[in-house]
Each structure stands twice: as C-alpha cells, then as structure tokens.
C-alpha cells in the first residue's frame, strides 16, 4: 500500500515495463517494507512488555527463592536425561494413538451420520459413545480403565496399566474427533450431495469421494488442535504410575525438592506442539493457493 502510493505520487508519466517489473516483483518477506516496519514496532513493544513484567518479577520478594526452585541450570542439566527418556514414551504414545483416534473418530462420525432407520442401533451407539466420553474428565477414564481392568484379571486381556491408559486416551480423543468430523461433514453444502447423487453415486460413494475429502480439509485445523490436546493428555497417564515425562519430572522434584524438572518437561512438550501447529497451517495454506485464484491473499 505505502509502496504504490509512493510511486503514483512521484511518477506522472506512464510506467515503463522495467519500472513496472520493479514494483511488481515481490521481495522476500524479510525485505518487505511493511514487514520491516511492523516488526520494528513488534520488537519494541515486546521489549517494553517483557521488560516490565520481568522487572516486577525480579523485584518481587520471593524472586530469589523462585529462581533457585524453578530456574536452576544445574538441576536442569541433571534432570534432563530422565525426563527426556520419559518424554520419548509420550511421543511413542501419541504417535501410536493418533492414527487410531483419527480412524475411530471417523467411524463414529460416519455411524452418527447414518439416516436410515435400519441403522438406528449403530447411530444410537455412536451418539451414546460420544456423549459419554466427551462428558467424562479424561483423567477419570484413565484411572478407571488403567486401574480397573487390570484388577479384573480377565483371561486374555492385557494387565498393563500403560496399555489401558492408552486405550482411555483413544476413547476420549475419538469422541472429540468424531464431533470435529461431523462439523466438517455438515458444513458441506447440500448441493454437493445433490450433484453427486444426480450422477448416480450411492450414499456411501457420495460420502467417500465428494463430502469427506472436502470436510476433512475444512476441519484439519480443529483435528490438529485435537492432536495437540492428545499429546498433552498423554501426560495424564502419569496418574497410573507410568514413567512418562511429567511423572519423571515429579519423581525428580520429589527427591531433590527442586522444581526445575517441570520446566524441562514443559519445554519438551512445547518444542513439539508449536512447530507442528505452524507446519499444518503452512501445508493448508499451500493446498488452498493451489486450488483457488488469489488464495495467497
């Protein structure tokens, strides 16, 4: 905006092709004037705000104690290996659980979408499942399954609390994921369904080839949020004694009376979740640009 007004003010004759090319060539983002301007403002305002909050914190009465308890470099280094080891279990859990959640959630959403009275029992099951596991706090489900089922000692069923904790995560996350899918499915305009049916596609084919691909694309951001929520939910499995990152941090602080280990665990979680969010945003934007005119704007 600033650039074009500058040009029109100074040039009163028609632009030559070379001049036009200079104006129209998009510079990389870090060289753009609007970026430099706004980032300068952002930097200054961040320094002011962080400086102010920092001054308040540092001058508070308990600062030195806090620093020793939560920001101790020595304890940071000492606790890191154990927590890292625990964190790998968190990663393993959510990498294994997420694909299952995506599939179970989709199946639930599709069952819920069945309109024929023949399928009423399936539809009823899906609704009951979703209502139940969305209504229950995840930590309760983990406790009940993780402690309860191994205690039953049923032949052939796993007695590992870790396994049942993971199952609990699948159940709660799937319920939320199903609702995300459903929102996407219902957001597709009925004319798309009509067009597909008019071509002779059946109910299932219409769903699979026409509705779902559009719906999933539309709900990728909420699905991604669900994935991040799941990553954090794996920390709840610590309540049934599994040595994952949070539990490892707790164990460390219990023996040393220092809480820096929690900071380690927190940083590890954030180091995964934030880049992942940015990556999805980027991928979505790219596919959008490919599909539409002016999608970049």
């Amino acid at each position: 905006m600033t650039m074009s007004s500058h040009v029109t003010a100074s040039v009163s004759r028609p632009l030559s092709d070379a001049e036009l090319a200079v104006i129209l060539t998009r510079k990389p983002w870090w060289q753009r004037r609007d970026f430099l301007g706004s980032s300068a403002i952002a930097v200054v305002s961040t320094i002011v705000v962080v400086g102010l909050l920092g001054t308040i914190a540092v001058n508070s009465e308990g600062w030195l104690l806090f620093q020793r308890a939560f920001l101790n470099p020595e304890h940071f280094a000492l606790s890191f290996p154990k927590i890292w080891e625990g964190f790998l279990l968190n990663v393993l859990l959510f990498v294994l659980i997420e694909p299952i959640v995506l599939i179970v959630g989709l199946v639930l959403a599709l069952l819920r979408n069945l309109s024929s009275p023949v399928f009423f029992p399936l539809r009823f099951f899906a609704i009951a499942f979703i209502d139940l596991f969305r209504g229950l706090p995840a930590i309760l489900v983990i406790l009940m399954l993780g402690m309860g089922i191994p205690a039953l000692r049923i032949e052939g069923l796993s007695t590992s609390p870790l396994f049942w904790g993971a199952v609990a995560c699948v159940l709660t996350s799937s319920a939320y994921t199903a609702e995300n899918y459903r929102a996407g499915i219902e957001s597709i305009h009925p004319s798309q369904r009509a067009a597909a049916r008019a071509l002779g596609l059946g109910h299932g084919q219409t769903m699979w080839f026409v509705i779902l691909p559009q719906a999933v694309r539309r709900v990728t951001p909420p699905l991604m949020s669900g994935f991040i929520a799941l990553q954090k939910e794996t920390a709840l499995i610590s309540v049934i004694g599994t040595m994952e990152a949070t539990r490892a941090a707790q164990a460390y602080s219990a023996t040393t009376f220092n809480f820096t280990s929690y900071l380690v665990a927190a940083l590890l979680f954030v180091a995964i979740t934030i880049p992942l969010t940015r990556l999805t945003d980027h991928l979505l934007r790219r596919s959008e640009i490919r599909r539409t005119v002016g999608g970049a704007v």
Binding site: Q192, A194, A196, A198, Q205, F209, P213, Q214, R291
Partner: peptide, 25 residues
C-alpha cells in the same frame, strides 16, 4: 441433471470431476 450453480466438486480437477461417475458407478 445440470444445475444452475454448476455444483462442480471443488476438490477435484476438471478431469476428475468428469471421470468420477464413469469410474465409480
């Protein structure tokens, strides 16, 4: 049946729009 608002499938290319029914039905 051809609709007033075209109702093409936005996630499919022109070719894929046309071949969907011949292939799947």
């Amino acid at each position: 049946l051809v609709f007033q608002q075209f109702n093409l499938f936005p996630h499919l290319t022109v070719l894929e729009n046309i071949t969907l029914a011949p292939r799947r039905v």
